[in-house]
Write a protein that binds this DNA or RNA. Structure first.
Length: 485
RNA sequence: GGCCCCAUCGUAUAGCGGCCUAGUACGCUGGCCUCUCACGCCGGUAACACGGGUUCGAAUCCCGUUGGGGUCACCA
């Protein structure tokens, strides 16, 4: 198996899903996973993008056995550094006659099609297939350099797609195609099959957009076999698209196409991998939450669904939330920290007191989040001094008339609790008898004002537990301040 | 336009000739739990694109139609 992205732009979820399926299949079968970079287009490739792809795979814990940064028997693994290899391959291919020199320019090809009364879209007309040495010499005399084209066999090309079954492209459905530019630069059309051949790749899993280029690659593989570079043609499998809203392919412009957008929102790798796996595959008929290990154990490409899948943010969030709940509290706590720092709730170097508060609060919020970026909003009040609590508008609006009476009665009741016994169950008991029984209030009426006084919000983690974390003094300060506002 | 791919609830999918009056999850929704919000639990909603075959029997196999998508570069 191999994963061989072009480093253009930020990593796309479709790209990551392709990586995941390749990786999972390699792990499932015990095969090798090769990571290679296809950077033959200097104009579009960037070093930044290259690093982002590595960042993405590392974040998701998709490791590779051979390739970038880990080496292997076919180094180097960046195509921009493999020119010598391609030069040699090109020479051999020319010698076998499977590749020929073509002097036609795109303009000339179009003009010939027009002159013949054909749609210019039919493309190259195989004009230069049988040029004589004299004709070639004449072109050269004009100062022209030839591109190299593969002579495509004059017969149907059939292959058995791993996810779609048998697919046949009729003879003549595509013309001889360019593999090397006139200046000698090899193109993707050459380099991709060549490296797959040299690196002994047996299974190619890639996006559906490459389906129609597969017969060309197979033609080239045959040429490579003739030239002695390999003995077999890999098996191909074409994964369905990941679509966005409506029926459009998830475009690079859509924010949810960007892997790092999801990381920034607080997806954990477990959750994102689980969701991405569900786009075209399923573990079983009645379960869609699973670990990567379970996926590896069960994953087979032949079970991949061939139809395109829409990316559903709500479902993705729900899956992530389930995985957040699966984390141990300690793990969950640690993973929240960067998001709390990003939200300016925690300092870059949290104090022991802050960490203690966080540890106490974490279990209260673990069931209240789908993505980790919800943490700052939920926990901020615990790290804010009583004097700086601000009250949200919707929280104040929903309060009953007698709020100040309720709060005053609460202060009275809480004052009676010894500091050492200021725990959530004691607090609850005290408040229950003071407000529910004493003032004969409904719980909703009684605790609403307290929640706002403590957290400034209409929605918060459980009230009594929050009070316990804040401690007696801070709790009372907040209540008093609320009544003085 | 040529060639290729795809077609089950709104979404993701289960289904590979009888277990299907079509299952599960998300979503939406009613309820229970409950100090808010969640979590959890119980219920509801909603689909085999259409038309022909093959067969005792079709969501499942075949053909056609329609619809969607891709690709036809000296990009990848």
């Amino acid at each position: 198996m191999r994963f061989c992205p072009s480093p253009t732009g930020t990593p796309h979820v479709g790209l990551v899903r392709t990586a995941l399926f390749n990786w999972a299949y390699a792990r499932h079968t015990g095969g090798k996973f090769i990571f290679r970079i296809e950077d033959t287009d200097a104009a579009r490739d960037s070093e930044e993008s290259y690093e982002q792809i590595i960042d993405a795979l590392s974040w998701l814990n998709l490791d590779w056995d051979e390739g970038i940064n880990v080496g292997g028997p076919h180094e180097p693994y960046r195509q921009s550094q493999r020119s010598d290899i391609y030069t040699e391959v090109i020479e051999k291919l020319k010698a076998t006659g499977r590749v020929y020199e073509s002097f036609s320019t795109p303009e000339e090809i179009e003009a010939r099609n027009l002159a013949a009364g054909k749609d210019p879209k039919v493309g190259y007309d195989n004009f230069d297939r049988n040029l004589t040495e004299e004709q070639k010499a004449a072109y050269r005399a004009e100062g022209r350099q030839p591109a190299l084209r593969v002579r495509v066999p004059d017969e149907d090309i059939t292959f058995d797609d791993l996810v779609r079954g048998e697919i046949t492209f009729p003879a003549g459905s595509f013309p001889d195609f360019v593999v090397v530019r006139p200046n000698g630069d090899p193109l993707y059309t050459l380099v991709n099959p060549v490296d797959d051949a040299i690196m002994q790749v047996t299974h190619v899993l890639r996006g559906e957009d490459l389906l129609s280029s597969t017969p060309r690659q197979i033609a080239l593989h045959h040429a490579l076999i003739d030239a002695g570079f390999t003995t077999h043609i890999p098996r191909f499998g074409h994964l369905p698209y990941v679509m966005g809203e409506g029926n459009k392919k998830l475009s690079k412009r859509d924010p949810e196409a960007n892997l790092f957008h999801h990381r920034d929102r607080g997806f954990i790798p477990e959750g994102l991998i689980n969701y991405l796996a569900l786009l075209g595959w399923s573990l079983s008929h009645d379960r869609d939450i699973f670990s990567i290990q379970e996926m590896v154990k069960a994953f087979d490409v032949v079970n991949v669904n061939p139809n395109p899948a829409r990316f559903d943010q709500k479902k993705a969030d729900a899956i992530n939330g389930d995985h957040i709940r699966l984390l141990t509290v300690e793990d969950f706590t640690a993973r929240m920290i960067p998001y709390l720092q990003a939200g300016n709730v925690l300092s870059n170097d949290p104090t022991d007191v802050q960490l203690e508060i966080l540890a106490a609060a974490a279990p209260l919020v673990q069931t209240r989040m789908n993505v980790l970026s919800e943490a700052p909003e939920l926990l901020e009040f615990l790290f804010t001094p009583a004097s700086q609590i601000t009250y949200a508008e919707d929280a104040l609006k929903g309060l009953p008339e007698n709020s100040s009476v309720v709060v005053a009665a609460s202060v009275e009741a809480l004052e009676l609790i010894p500091e050492a016994e200021f725990t959530h169950d004691v607090i609850q008991e005290a408040l229950n008898s003071a407000l529910i029984e004493g003032l004969e209030l409904k719980p909703r009426i009684a605790f609403g004002p307290l929640r706002t006084a403590i957290s400034g919000r209409r929605i918060s983690p459980p009230l009594f537990e929050s009070m316990e974390i804040l401690g007696k003094q801070d709790t009372i300060d907040r209540l008093v301040r609320f009544n003085e506002r």
